[in-house]
Structures are given as C-alpha cells and as structure tokens.
Design a protein around this nucleic acid. Structure first.
Lengths: 144, 144
DNA sequence: CGGGATCCTTTCTGATACTG
DNA sequence: CAGTATCAGAAAGGATCCCG
C-alpha cells in the first residue's frame, strides 16, 4: 500500500531517494544511479523476454530447447543471454546432466518464484487495462 | 494469484499466449508481438525513467522544471519524451496555464494511479530483495 | 519556462555461422 | 543439444543549441 506523502514543500529538490522512501515507507534506499533497487529490478523484468521466460519456468522446469520452442520468436542469442542474466541474479538455476547429447535444465529459484508472484498482479493489470491504453493512444494520435 | 498449470505436455510448443492464458487464468490474449498487453506495459514501466516520474506525480502534480529538479540525472530530452509517452498512454495529463512565462503542470490520471498502486508491491519487492540479488551476482561473478 | 530539433554514443537485438 | 562468436541494424539515451 502507498503511504501518505508530505505536502507543502514536499519532495521537490530533494532527489529521488526521498520520493521512494516516502512512497515505500521509510526504507532507506541508496539512490546512486546504479544502486537503486527499483530500477535495477525494473530494468530486468522490463526486458523483452525476461517475464516470458519466468512465466514458462513458473509452469515447470524447462530445457533450453523447450524454452526456445515455447517462445518461438526469441533468438537463440537472446535466450542464452537472458537466461544467464537471470541465473546471475539468482532468479533461476541451471542444472547440467552429463548425458549424451548434453541436457540442461532451467528452473525457478525461490527468489524467482517470489518475483513472479509479485509480478503477476501487474500482468493482470496490463491485461485488464490494455484497452484503455490503446484507446488513449488512438485519441492522442488523432488530434492531440 | 497464479493458477495451477497443466502438467504433462504442458505448454511446450503452444506459443506464449497459452502460457499467459494459463497463468493469468483464461484470458484470451492475442500474442502478435505488438499486441501482448503484458509486454506493452512492461516495456513502458521498464524504461529508465517511467517509474520515477510516476512516483513523483503520485506524490503531487509537478511542473516540468520541478520534475527535472526532482530527478536530477534525467536529460531534458528524455523527460519530455517520457512525459509524452505517458500522456499518450493516458497515464498522466498535461495542463497548460497561459501565464508568462508559460507554466505546464503534469498530474497522474486515475489510470496512472491504478498502475502505480499495482506497481508498488513490485517496488517493495525490489527493495526487500535487492541484497539477495547483489549477493547472487557476486557469487556468480566470482567463480561461476 | 517548457520545450523542439539535431547530432552522436551506447545498448539492445536479430541473423548467421561454427563447436563440444 | 546447448550453446559461443561475430557482425550489422535498430533503438534508447545524452549533449547541445535554438525558440516563443
């Protein structure tokens, strides 16, 4: 829930940390550009493929090729790269089975699972409100 | 809340729409790349500045210069552009006062407000779990 | 004050070819 | 099968100058 914000001089001129702190409620957040947790997370899930991969892994563990088939329009390069990033962030884990040919399975970690649980209301909002957005765009584009 | 997903053949080879439908619960979602509501929204809030602007406007209406000062490291160009995009999407409204010099005020619309309310749990998650992510990265970068 | 227009650099993404 | 390496185009972002 959002917290009541101070009025009057308010947040003006105090930098972003004050705002986030005010909105999130007293949490101290280092706001040195690269330290901002909000942007750090949003930049990742905002990527073109991250959420789609997490959704697939939420369903069940997947092998590399399975993911590739489940998300037909992803390139091999981006799949590899996104998986690496998510593994690096501790959102997914990678398990190699030394069979022949090799087999690699990806699965959601607890951290990744908690992220997608938190993310799902936002996805629901997107579905629910997409028509509003499209309509607003049409109006804006038509006359201004 | 997330829905139980079918096992067995599951989602493999059925395309992304099936997954989103399964996870979000029976909503029919056209998944032609540009039609996906989830990606459409995520691409926007994932931008470098969108969430920060929305947070500021959540606190109270802001004038252009106020926003610029509140977010010191944004360039004038990106501020203008992001505001236009959000206005186009119906998330914020723009009010011009024909004073001299001119004054323009931006404020959150109801739609924008509902978005940031939905978004705030995710921001809280980011704050709460950022240390986990940083730690995972350190481990990953150290050895693999 | 609130931008628009332009140029330039960085980052992202896709296509293609090759490998253990 | 599950990647790596390389290249090229597209897009995002920043710096600067200009205007009513």
């Amino acid at each position: 829930m959002l917290k009541e914000l101070p009025q009057g001089e308010g947040l003006m001129g105090k930098g972003v940390d004050t705002i986030v702190e005010a909105v999130l409620g007293g949490v101290t957040v280092g706001m040195n550009p690269s330290d901002c947790p909000v942007r750090d997370v949003l930049d990742h899930i905002g990527g073109k493929w991250s959420s789609l991969i997490l959704l697939n892994l939420k369903a069940r563990p997947h092998r590399f090729g399975e993911l590739k088939r489940a998300i037909p329009d992803i390139s091999q390069r981006m799949l590899t790269q996104t998986l690496r990033d998510q593994q690096r962030d501790g959102l997914i884990s990678r398990h190699v089975f030394p069979t022949n040919p090799p087999s690699v399975e990806y699965r959601l970690t607890d951290l990744g699972d908690s992220l997608i649980v938190t993310l799902s209301p936002l996805m629901a909002w997107a579905v629910d409100n997409h028509s509003h957005i499209l309509k607003a765009r049409a109006v804006f584009d038509d006359h201004g």
